[in-house]
């Protein structure tokens, strides 16, 4: 690694003032677990890193908010994994965190860094996309809310400006009876980055007293990650589910629609054709396991 200037501001205002809108060599850093390997490989050679570790409490903590969650960007993945609040609102997040990298990385890596990195292999972006989450980003120009579906634009590219910081993540209250699952498929070793990640979310109408009417899905969300250049929602699969019964035939139809719609990238974890078939398999499995 090459040396760089390290600054450790105490407040968010100081931190955003130290970021530079036009200099990609200046980056915010929290746990550093994603950036250090890139720096060792000389894929990233910063001139200045703005460490967030001395910031006051503003970006920390796991809070309940209107039946949903407010998650500080500096919350570690371990804090989220162990949080009973997270488990109560979004058990799919708690489960996904258990197989995200390893204990040591989760002890240090933060939620904000996980999302701001823009790596398509990260586990939480597809999960948060299906949960309807938003991030609050701050900069010298003020703050703005970004829907998780709009956060990642491409391979390691996000909609965040170079001088913007993620402050927190909101997960809205989930409707009663919402069904969720995250299916992580690792083609190499069990602890590898995923070859395909699939998050699903759906809810059904309450059949009520009319037992002659079959239960149908009134709303469905499907997100695919890792196989693609960025995590993506799959409208074709979602419309195959909406208005249909949550049965095996419907799930197969949605899985086929996802396999047709998504554009996988070939890499050391498999060819594009292989990943397309894996998307078919794992969208179906995620829906079955959510049921």
């Amino acid at each position: 690694m090459k040396s760089f200037e390290l600054v450790e501001p105490a407040t968010i205002d100081e931190a955003v003032a130290l970021l530079e809108p036009d200099d990609p060599g200046v980056r915010a850093i929290a746990g550093a677990t994603a950036l250090v390997p890139m720096m060792k490989a000389r894929l990233f050679q910063p001139t200045r890193l703005v460490s967030l570790r001395r910031l006051d409490g503003a970006l920390r903590g796991v809070h309940e908010h209107e039946g949903g969650l407010r998650l500080g960007a500096l919350a570690t993945l371990t804090e989220l994994e162990r949080s009973s609040r997270v488990r109560a609102v979004a058990p799919v997040m708690s489960r996904a965190l258990r197989t995200l990298s390893n204990v040591r990385i989760r002890n240090v890596a933060t939620l904000g860094g996980h999302l701001a990195h823009g790596d398509p292999h990260m586990d939480l972006p597809p999960v948060l996309m299906t949960l309807g989450a938003r991030v609050r980003a701050v900069s010298r120009r003020g703050e703005r809310w970004i829907d998780l579906n709009d956060l990642v634009l491409g391979y390691y590219q996000t909609t965040m400006a170079a001088d913007e910081l993620i402050a927190e993540v909101h997960v809205p209250a989930q409707p009663t009876g919402a069904r969720t699952w995250y299916e992580k498929f690792t083609a190499l070793s069990a602890d590898d980055w995923p070859t395909v990640g699939v998050a699903v979310w759906y809810r059904t109408d309450a059949a009520g007293s009319d037992t002659t009417r079959p239960t149908v899905m009134t709303e469905a969300r499907v997100a695919v990650s890792a196989a693609t250049e960025r995590p993506v929602r799959v409208p074709a699969a979602e419309s195959a589910l909406t208005g249909a019964a949550p049965d095996d035939a419907t799930f197969r139809k949605a899985a086929d629609a996802a396999a047709d719609a998504v554009e996988p990238l070939a890499d050391l974890r498999g060819s594009a054709a292989y990943k397309r078939e894996m998307i078919r398999v794992h969208v179906r499995r995620a829906l079955e396991r959510a049921r």
Binding site: L6, A32, V36, P37, T78, R104, N107, V108
Partner: peptide, 9 residues
């Protein structure tokens, strides 16, 4: 808390 020393500044 356990950390990886190779990634920890």
């Amino acid at each position: 808390t356990a950390v990886s020393g190779c990634l920890y500044f």
